[in-house]
Structure formats: structure tokens, C-alpha cells
Design a binder for these strands. Structure first.
Lengths: 241, 241
DNA sequence: CGTAAATTTGAATGGATTCAAACGTGGTGG
DNA sequence: CCACCACGTTTGAATCCATTCAAATTTACG
């Protein structure tokens, strides 16, 4: 029920911070170097083990998080109160943008696998906002756009076509571009929730893909054939206006 | 192919501007009264007839639009290039937030019924951004959040359950809270695209709803029984994590 | 008034759901 | 250390839902 504790293994900002959203956001404010040094040390790296929540739907948004490693799923209650997966965010994503406006978290963020992330307290954010230049607005806007793109691409690619095509698209999304192994350590019920099908159907489809050779390897560390998945992802149906 | 012309029936800002997003955005910048007067007159009211496009996917975002009256559908190409409806925006919504960052439109916005809207040129927006205070960031954030909420609620309410439940939820969303008649002048193919079902299924479901008395009235001006729709919208299926 | 576009309806097929039961697997405590 | 339990997964079989293709009908609009 209560908040998950998310402190452990704090470490100083290191070289990997180069592309970190937090860095970009903080730098975008174009502060004088002195203020910059005051802000950055207050944002540190944390870890969170799988299945734990970064924050929960309805909590006041007290910080902005930048994912450094791992995947997080975003859950939101549907009209019956059941949680639905509405998004998956990977390394490089910013979570909890609501903190900029002292808002309330719109969804629950849960670690799908062990997470590594940075945390910027809301107070720091708002301090930045009050003194920052146009670059700060741009950088925030970029992240909001990214979230919107993510949500809309879910509607487009996971909302139409057969369940088989949708699963193929989802796996492709989860497969890092560099050909690494995808994170299909997702629960079957999460797959189902993302695809809008039942857990059993998700399981059957995964089994079919495995038999057909679209994916193989161990259950924990699956590999996938991106080329064949791409072919399976096409051939949709319905039209529109 | 080319841009739709969207000028006609320009009118001065009037009393109805009170709750207009453009007003709120401009005012949030907390400019001195003199600058304010320079900006506002440059944002005027336009109309656009049904089926015409406000802007198209891929176009550079040159302005921000505030819907005053009517509904617009947002289209986005799927992996096969077919347009999919990814959202429906009604009066009070802000369209084209990409203009703040000189971005490119992520979707095509098409009038579902005659539109009345305000337009703020991008140059004015960026001028505001450069001189505006924290309130400007907040106001923009509010609109981005609203878009995100819209997109995610589409995933949640139109991505799960039987087609019948999804249609009921969609109709409820389109039905103004005050009990007015909903805008179901949507094409059946748009309904299908929104619900992720075929055009024929959308037609069959609408017919069934009509026979059951969940909706009635003429095709152009349908009425709906919100209470019974609400009951039809529940009773979902699948679980999740 | 006549043509094109949108809608409705039918019938057969294929896909997804449900309920149910069996199986694997990780963790805890005896 | 092993038994056992909880949890997640897999698979089967019957049913129901949605799709497809096709044709008829209505509506919109020049």
C-alpha cells in the first residue's frame, strides 16, 4: 500500500550521464555555472528491483525520473478499477513530468526488470523553471512530445490488426535496435493487457512464434528474428476515412 | 494534396473568449498590458467546414489552434501508410502544440463537423515563450497533459473489452455532459478505426444500440441514453498484472 | 435527378475468449 | 534438504464474437 522505498546504491553522476534526460533538462535551463553546480548534485542515481513501483497513480508528483537502464511499465486503472498497461518506457525516457506543475501522477510506474534511474526533486525542477530560459521549455516540450508519440503509437500499432500482428509489433518495439535480446520477460498478462487480448491468447501466440522460429532462446533471455517479425507485423486489415 | 485554406469569417475576439485556451495561454505569459495588446489581435477566429484539414501530418507546425466549437479527428499513418484515427478533440482543446518548438505536425487534424477555432501564429508563441514567466510553462504543460490523458484514456477505454463495451464508452465520451445530443455524425469507418474494429461491425453495433434504445433520434442528430450506455460500458473481461 | 459515397444487412469463415485442468518454477519453512 | 505452496504459464475444447466478401439500400451532393 505505502510508497515503495527507492533509495539504494546511490552513485555520483558519471560519464554515462552524457545523454541523460536529466542532464539535458538541467543544462537546457542555461543557468550560470554556479547555479548549475547547486542543482546537479541533488539529482542522484538510484536503483529499483523488478516489480517495485517508482510511483503510484494518484500520488502527488514529487520528482522527475530519468531512466538509465531497464524498462518500466505504466499502469492506469480502467473504468472497472482494474489496472491496464498503457505504456512501456525504456532507457532514455523521462517519467513523472507531472512534477513540473506540482501535478498528480496519472499512472503507476512499475519496474519490469531492475531499474537504474536519476531523480530530480520537484523543488529543483520548479526552481529551474522560474529562472530558466526558452531552452528549458523546449526540452520539456520534447519530452512531452515523446510521451505523446509513445501513447499514440500504441493506439496505432497495438490497436489494429490481428493479435498476431500486434504482438509482432510489440516485440519489435521491445527489441533494441542494435540486435540485442529483447525484454520479453514481460508477464503474459502484461502482454495481453498491452495487446488488448487475454492472457491465454498472448501465451498461445508466443508459443506459436517460438515454434515458427520468430523467437527462441531461453524464457528469461529470449532472442528474436527482427526481420521475420517485421514481415509478420504487416498485412493489416481495416480501413479508415 | 496542398494545404487547406482555413480563412473565412474572421471575427474579433468576443466574450466567448473567456475560457478559450488561447486566452489562457497568452494571459499566462503575464506580459505587461502593452505587449498583451500586441499579441492578442493577431490571433483571430476562423471557421473550417466539415471534412477539411486544419493541418496535415508532416507539415511544419506554424500555429497553435484552440477549438471553440465542433470536433476534430486526429489521423496518423500506421505502418502500412493507412490513416488511423488516434484521437478526437472537442471544444476547449488546443491543437498543434508542436508549434511551440518549431516542430512538425505528428498527425493530420480533420474537421468532423464545422469548426470554429482560434489561431496563434508560431512566431507569436515563440515570442511569448522568450519573455514569459513560469505561468506560461505551466499552462503549456497543462495542455500537454490533457493530450496525454486523452491518448492514454483511448488506450484504456477503447483498447480492451468487447467491441460493444468500447463503442458504449466512445459514445459516452462524445456525449456532452449536459445531456445534449452527441456527435455521432462520425463516419462508420471512423468509428471502426477508433474502436479497432471493421466498419461493418461498427455499423452492426450502432444498429443494435438503436434497436435496444441506447440511442435514438435521427441519424444526423442522434440522442443517447447516457445511463444505459454507462451500464453497457462496464462488465469488462481480461485482467492484468 | 442522377451518380458517387456511405451505410446496412446476410452468410460463411476464422479468430479470440472462456472455463478448466495440468505443468513448471521459485521461494519459504519445517 | 526437501516438501509444499503460490504464482505464472501452457494447453485443450466448446462457444461466441468479429471479419470478410458480397450485394442491396440509403444518403449526400453537384
Amino acid at each position: 500500500m505505502g510508497l515503495d522505498l527507492c533509495q539504494s546504491a546511490q552513485m555520483a553522476h558519471d560519464l554515462r550521464c552524457a545523454g541523460c534526460p536529466v542532464q539535458r533538462i538541467v543544462r537546457s535551463a542555461a543557468l550560470p555555472a554556479s547555479s548549475f553546480d547547486q542543482v546537479l548534485p541533488r539529482s542522484q542515481t538510484f536503483t529499483l528491483s523488478a516489480k517495485r513501483a517508482l510511483y503510484r497513480e494518484g500520488d502527488p508528483a514529487e520528482a522527475l525520473y530519468a531512466l538509465r537502464r531497464g524498462w518500466a511499465k505504466l499502469l492506469r486503472k480502467d473504468e472497472n478499477g482494474k489496472p491496464r498497461v498503457v505504456g512501456l518506457l525504456g532507457a532514455g525516457s523521462a517519467l513523472g513530468l507531472e512534477a513540473v506543475t506540482r501535478g498528480v501522477h496519472r499512472h503507476t510506474a512499475v519496474a519490469v526488470e531492475p531499474l537504474e534511474f536519476c531523480r530530480v526533486p520537484g523543488a529543483v525542477l520548479r526552481q529551474l523553471r522560474s529562472v530558466a530560459g526558452p531552452g528549458f521549455v523546449d526540452e520539456l516540450a520534447r519530452h512531452w512530445q515523446a510521451h505523446l508519440d509513445e501513447a499514440e503509437s500504441m493506439v496505432v500499432s497495438l490497436g489494429n490488426g490481428t493479435a498476431e500482428q500486434r504482438l509482432a509489433r510489440l516485440l519489435l518495439k521491445l527489441a533494441p535496435a542494435d540486435g540485442e535480446n529483447p525484454c520479453v520477460s514481460l508477464l503474459r498478462s502484461d502482454l495481453g493487457s498491452l495487446l488488448g487480448v487475454s492472457m491465454e491468447t498472448a501465451s498461445r501466440l508466443m508459443a506459436r512464434f517460438r515454434r515458427s522460429g520468430l523467437i527462441d532462446g531461453t524464457r528469461r533471455r529470449p532472442q528474436c528474428d527482427a526481420e521475420r517479425l517485421r514481415r509478420a507485423a504487416c498485412g493489416s486489415a481495416n480501413e479508415s476515412s
